[in-house]
Design a binder for these strands. Structure first.
Length: 554
DNA sequence: TATTTAAGCGCC
DNA sequence: AAAGGGCGCTTAAATA
């Protein structure tokens, strides 16, 4: 059963359809959404799927009222997939022109109130909310119906929508963050917190060494052009001031300079200011954007930088007393996806031992584990030169199916065609790099480079996008399993997801349930593998760590 | 002065 | 070691 929710002049309307899309109850006003949702969610018989324009506009309020939703359809996210997918390209939806459903989600206003984060829901705001969700719901069902294998795209839509629920729940619950631990880390690395915006002590010390070694007493190291000039005057010919380039230079100024840069990064990205802005009541609330990346990966927004939390500060992520963090990481996910996509049995076998790269060495394709890794990265990203490019042919010889698969994706992109992930997310169409007889040699070169660059994108798209689908299925399944394990006593009282990082999840769990959480995470990973690849002999092993602090994992 | 772009670096 | 895919954020520099 589907319950389509709409807002109209301050009221909430529900329209109910059965699983075949037949109208059961016409639109009627709901007095209290939380009461209505809670009632239907309790009914084992009904199995409601809530259909709404945008999960981030509906679900946070329900969570604050203590109500969880098992299943939903996020019309905006599903629309984006259906509009672009090769599997539904002939549908009316895909052939229609851009409309309000194609637009990005409007910015929900967020205010800090009483030391808690709230979304300041603008209930009558513009955006998709003003469009008719019933018409869109029916249009999307029709689009799915045009697919040759509707189960495939349906699975993707379910996973995408479940991901939106997960993102909202993670944001609501937050990642346990110990301010004192973070502060003591900052003091250890940077020195005491300075007044105002002065440089911390330890940065000043390193900077003075740099200035002395470069004979540049007034150097501002935060200005790349100025730094480059100072280096030049000291006889250092650097192309840029990037750390990895400076690393190779033998000069007494380099070591303190790199130390300074490292500290400057910590200070500006995750220093005291970050802590004050992003940690509220012992929780960091990641602001994920499901489907925010073309490949289907999540993006994040806001100063929290959820997807870029440096390893350096993860020691501040500490489980509550009596609780544990269960950290699980899908080992070598993308190479395994690459093996699974074309059912490359040889590569799948290489991964069966647990270390895919070691397996590739054992098969004799390359000599060392490092070579295996670099060669695989080259296959997935499209290396054109260097060691990676040289190793690629050896990989192609041993694993022709896998390499042919990504090569085909690259060629398709170069021809201006779209490519599609396992479950049916398609790449955008690249700008065609055509040229005619009037083109100069430079134009031709430019067009060719552009085509190759787009080919590297489509090559990576199928792997990264399918890996993202796997991760969505993994989390969606895990979410259900955790709720069952927790006994439905409330999100933050049960084991619950608190962090996600492309191929890694963190669950905050009562200590006595931590072992069982680990088992559920593994079971969910096995389910995800089957959801994407049925009974193909490819497994997706995990490393699972039960820890008190995130820094202990890996 | 305000906004946009580029450099640099963090994550996968 | 630093090539090749995807991001977001902060700061400084460039532009309006």
């Amino acid at each position: 059963m589907h319950v389509v929710l709409a807002r109209s002049r301050g009221e909430i309307l529900a329209t109910i359809f059965d699983d075949h899309g037949i109208l059961l109850e016409p639109a009627h006003v709901i007095d209290s959404l939380a009461v209505e949702v809670a009632r239907r969610e309790r009914s084992a018989r009904e199995r409601a799927r809530w259909v709404w324009d945008d999960t981030s506009r509906w679900y946070p309020q329900l969570l604050r009222e203590g109500v969880r939703v098992e299943r939903c359809v996020d019309l905006r996210l599903c629309h984006a997939i259906l509009r672009g997918s090769a599997l539904t390209a002939t549908s009316a939806l895909a052939r229609s022109s851009q409309d309000e459903w194609s637009l990005a989600s409007p910015e929900p206003r967020v205010v800090v109130r009483a030391a808690t984060l709230f979304d300041d829901d603008d209930e009558d705001g513009a955006g998709p909310a003003s469009a008719d969700p019933i018409a869109e719901f029916l249009r999307q069902r029709a689009a799915v119906g045009t697919a040759q294998d509707p189960a495939r795209i349906s699975r993707l839509l379910s996973a995408e929508s479940a991901g939106a629920l997960v993102a909202a729940e993670i944001r609501f619950a937050g990642l346990p963050w110990r301010t004192e631990a973070h502060e003591s880390l900052l003091e250890r690395v940077l020195g005491p917190r300075p007044r105002g915006d002065e440089r911390p002590e330890h940065m000043v010390e390193q900077l003075e060494r740099v200035r002395a070694e470069l004979s540049a007493p007034d150097l501002n190291p935060d200005s790349p052009p100025e730094l480059l000039r100072a280096l030049g005057r000291a006889g250092i010919q650097a192309e840029s001031t990037r750390s990895w380039e400076l690393q190779n230079i033998d000069h007494p100024a380099i070591e303190p300079l790199l130390a300074y840069k490292k500290m400057a990064r910590l200070l500006s990205a995750n220093g005291w200011a970050w802590l004050e802005a992003n940690v509220v009541s012992g929780r960091f609330h990641p602001d994920y954007v499901p489907g925010g990346v073309v490949t289907g990966r999540w993006a994040s927004k806001g100063g929290g930088g959820a997807l870029q939390l440096p390893k350096q500060v993860r020691g501040a992520v500490i489980a509550d007393a009596g609780w544990k963090l269960v950290v699980a990481d899908a080992a070598q996910l993308e190479p395994r996806i690459l093996a699974a996509l074309p059912a490359d049995r040889g590569m799948a076998e290489a991964g069966a031992s647990g270390d895919l790269y070691a397996g590739i060495v054992a098969s004799g394709a390359v000599d060392t584990r490092d070579h295996a890794k670099v060669a695989m990265l080259g296959a997935m990203y499209g290396a054109t030169s260097g060691e990676s490019g040289r190793l690629l042919p050896r990989l192609a010889k041993s694993y022709p199916r896998a390499i042919a698969y990504v090569e085909a994706a690259a060629r398709a992109g170069e021809r201006g065609e779209i490519v599609t992930t396992r479950l049916g997310r398609s790449s955008p169409r690249g700008a065609s790099a055509d040229y005619d007889e009037t083109a100069t040699a430079a134009d031709v070169v430019r067009a060719r480079n552009q085509a190759r660059s787009w080919g590297r994108f489509t090559r990576n798209f199928v792997v990264q996008g399918t890996a993202a689908e796997w991760a969505l299925c993994w989390m969606a399944g895990l979410r259900g399993r955790l709720r069952a394990l927790g006994g439905d006593i409330g999100l933050v009282h049960e084991p619950h997801l608190v962090f996600f990082l492309h191929d890694e999840v963190v669950v905050h769990a009562p200590a006595h349930l931590a072992e069982r959480v680990g088992e559920e995470i593994r079971a969910a990973a096995a389910d995800a593998g089957r959801l994407l690849f049925a009974d193909l002999p490819v497994d997706f092993p995990l490393t699972v760590a039960i820890v008190d602090t995130y820094a202990e994992a890996k």
